Simulated assay, not measured.
Amino acid sequence: MQLKSCLLLHIDGSTAFAENNGRQMLTYGRVVPFPELFARIDAVDAAAVKDIAGKFILNQDVAIAAMGPVQGLPERSWFQSQVRDEQN
């Protein structure tokens, strides 16, 4: 509901309305009516999110960023093994 509300509140002026329509034209090749867009949002469930996460997040190499004293930071391979253990 929050996403749907934000989408509706975002088009509060002619510039925002034009930007929304332009973005949809670039993405979908047409302007998607709000009822259709909301139906697509409603169709997303936990299984769909898990499936996409598995394809684009979980099955990717681990990236690590650290700041400060990093002497005790485990090697990259340790982080990768933790991700593999969670997947199994």
Rank of each mutant, 00 (worst) to 15 (best):
L9R: 15
F34T: 08
Q2M: 12
E86W: 12
L37T: 02
D51H: 11
A63S: 06
K50A: 15
D42P: 04
S77P: 02
G54V: 07
C6I: 07
P74K: 04
L37M: 13
Q87P: 00
S81Q: 14
A53Y: 06
G68V: 10
T15R: 15
Q2I: 11
V70M: 04
I64S: 00
G54I: 07
A53I: 04
D42G: 05
S14L: 14
L3P: 00
Q60Y: 02
L9W: 07
A18I: 08
D12P: 01
N59L: 04
A65I: 03
V83D: 00
G72I: 01
A39G: 06
D51P: 00
K50E: 15
L8H: 10
F17E: 13
V83C: 01
E36G: 05
V83E: 02
A46M: 10
M25T: 04
S81I: 00
V62I: 14
V32N: 08
A39Y: 04
D61R: 15
A16W: 04
G72T: 01
L8P: 01
D12V: 02
L26D: 10
L8D: 10
Q60P: 01
S77E: 15
Q71I: 01
K55M: 11
A43C: 12
L3W: 06
Q87E: 09
G54Y: 07
N21S: 13
N88G: 04
F38C: 02
Y28N: 13
M67G: 03
E36V: 07
A39M: 05
V83L: 05
A39V: 04
K4Q: 15
D12N: 13
N88C: 01
S5G: 07
C6P: 00
Y28Q: 07
V83I: 14
I11D: 03
G68R: 10
R76V: 09
W78K: 08
R84Q: 12
I41D: 11
H10I: 00
Q71T: 09
R23H: 00
E86N: 09
M25D: 02
K55S: 10
L26C: 05
N21G: 04
A46R: 14
N59E: 12
V32W: 07
M1S: 13
G29F: 05
V44R: 09
P35V: 03
F34W: 08
Q87F: 05
W78P: 01
F56H: 14
V31F: 08
E19P: 01
K50C: 03
R30G: 04
A53R: 10
S77N: 08
A43Y: 12
T27Q: 13
F17H: 13
G13P: 06
N59K: 13
M1C: 09
L7C: 09
Q2N: 14
P33H: 02
C6E: 14
E75C: 02
G13A: 13
T15F: 14
